[in-house]
């Protein structure tokens, strides 16, 4: 019958109209910025550099290996390596970035830099309200703006941060165990050497007495 489909359509729209007053499923508007959706854990927006501890300079994990700069598809990272070294989280002296700039007007949030970083130094942040009115430099984030603490990382990506922390702790333990074993071995060796020298000196001394001038 002509008009039947139209009436079915009208019923559908009326259902949605009435439903929008009673059920949240039928009124899905979130009035930003007064209301916000809960952020999803794995979301990624722009990168940031992780530092351990309190000091962003001393605790910065980045060792300026420049792998992320090479792998970045739109080439938005600019790194200048330092000339001196500073100790990293296990105590080994490493280079650090004298300059680390990311141009977020070029960055496409592909997250490849995070994937290829061997040192867990660069991770994805979740902040997206980064608009600025400085069109000539406001969208270039330098090392100071990019460095954020590990606590921040644990807050925004708890699961990933827990994994990374576990891995780094494991590495640190391994290095420390190796160092301890090496130290023990070195201590044992030096103790053995000292004992051998003493024995030598004693025998040398006794030998020396027996030797006629």
């Amino acid at each position: 019958m002509l008009g039947e489909g139209i009436l079915k359509g009208l019923a559908e729209t009326a259902k949605n109209f009435a439903g929008s007053f009673v059920s949240e499923d039928r009124l899905t508007t979130v009035e930003y910025p007064e209301q916000r959706l809960l952020p999803i854990e794995n979301t990624r927006d722009f990168p940031f550099l992780v530092y351990d501890g309190e000091d962003p300079e001393a605790g910065l994990r980045c060792v300026s290996c420049q792998i992320c700069e090479k792998e970045c598809p739109p080439k938005c990272i600019y790194i200048v390596k330092s000339t001196d070294k500073k100790p990293d989280y296990v105590g080994k002296p490493q280079f650090y970035p004298a300059r680390f700039d990311i141009d977020i007007s070029v960055c496409m949030s592909c997250q490849i830099c995070v994937e290829v970083c061997p040192f867990e130094a660069i991770k994805m942040d979740t902040e997206f309200e980064l608009s600025t009115d400085d069109r000539f430099g406001g969208l270039i984030l330098d090392k100071h703006k990019l460095a954020k603490s590990n606590e921040h990382f644990q807050r925004i990506h708890p699961t990933e941060a827990a994994e990374v922390d576990a891995r780094l702790a494991e590495e640190k333990e391994k290095v420390e165990a190796k160092a301890k074993a090496a130290a023990e071995a070195a201590a044992a060796k030096s103790a053995a050497e000292a004992a051998a020298r003493k024995a030598d000196a004693g025998s040398a001394g006794s030998n020396a007495e027996g030797v006629k001038p």
């Binding site: 949605n16 109209f17 929008s20 007053f21 039928r26 009124l27 899905t28 508007t29 009035e31």
Partner: peptide
């Protein structure tokens, strides 16, 4: 507002 409610959204508010 009516069109908005039919389309699962708020109208001007």
């Amino acid at each position: 507002k009516g069109l908005g409610r039919m389309q699962n959204r708020l109208g001007p508010n």
